[in-house]
């Protein structure tokens, strides 16, 4: 894999909550320009892996590099969409305002967003088909619309790597297609996209790269090569048969 540039490399990463390991000695190398799914059962540490890469959770061992450098030096290259349920949607703010938060990182401390940031945010809202909802209070949006707003917020960060934690959870079919199309566009533009994903049926259709995770890393690589019953069984612990593409 030396000839391809590595977008993300994780070495010997171990994360523990209360001395119980949630991620155990993870090695991961994600090449630039892939659309990667992280799959695994509940409690496998999928979200934790993303959070540890982004420094939100401190690992007890191991290291992470984004394009060869520590994350702290590469923040502006990375966009993050947390799980929709992790924020309070009754917070007094509007769709456009949430998208504008995506520009805060590049502004840094103290500096306020101005016209340029507003324009970029409006464009991002348009891209996800939410422009007409820009002044809507976020609690008045449906689950799918809220997820689109989150996606717009990531787009406005104009990053090289996108981390998304379950972007398809609780969204309608139209939104799911709209989101995956945008993610595929990002890949086409040479960006790297990492998605925590639950629906195994859609993995071959949506993604070209996959990581199987269950506290330990089971396998990682191109979907075509490693998305098979063997790895699924190793990850989920039961004899797994994929209905699709078999």
């Amino acid at each position: 894999m030396d000839e391809t540039k590595l977008a993300i490399s994780v070495d010997d990463l171990t994360v523990a909550y209360d001395y119980k390991p949630v991620l155990w000695d993870i090695d991961l190398a994600v090449p630039e320009g892939v659309l990667m799914a992280i799959v695994g059962p509940n409690g496998a540490g999928k979200s934790t892996l993303i959070k540890a890469i982004l420094g939100i959770i401190k690992p007890i061992a191991g290291s992470v590099a984004i394009y060869g450098k520590p994350y702290e030096k590469q923040r502006k290259l990375v966009a993050y969409v947390p799980q929709k349920g992790s924020v309070d949607w009754d917070f007094p703010t509007t769709a456009i305002d949430v998208v504008m938060m995506g520009t805060y990182g590049s502004l840094g401390w103290i500096k306020r967003p101005g016209q340029k940031e507003k324009k970029a945010s409006l464009e991002a809202l348009e891209k996800v088909g939410m422009l007409s909802f820009k002044n809507r209070q976020i609690s008045q949006l449906s689950g799918g619309q809220q997820q689109r707003v989150f996606l717009a917020r990531a787009l406005v960060q104009n990053a090289s790597i996108y981390f998304m934690d379950e972007p398809f959870q609780g969204v309608d079919a139209t939104t799911e297609i709209a989101i995956i199309n945008i993610l595929k566009e990002l890949r086409k533009a040479g960006k790297t996209v990492v998605v925590v994903h639950h629906d195994l049926q859609t993995v071959p259709e949506y993604f070209d790269w996959v990581t199987f995770l269950n506290v330990k890393k089971i396998a990682t690589g191109p979907v075509k090569e490693i998305f098979n019953d063997d790895n699924l069984t190793k990850t989920y612990g039961i004899n797994y048969k994929v209905a699709v593409n078999k």
């Binding site: 982004l54 420094g55 939100i56 923040r75 990375v78 993050y80 924020v87 949430v98 938060m101």
Partner: peptide, 10 residues
Amino acid sequence: FDTGLSSAMG
């Protein structure tokens, strides 16, 4: 609003 994003942004 979003502790995770805030932390990821530094």
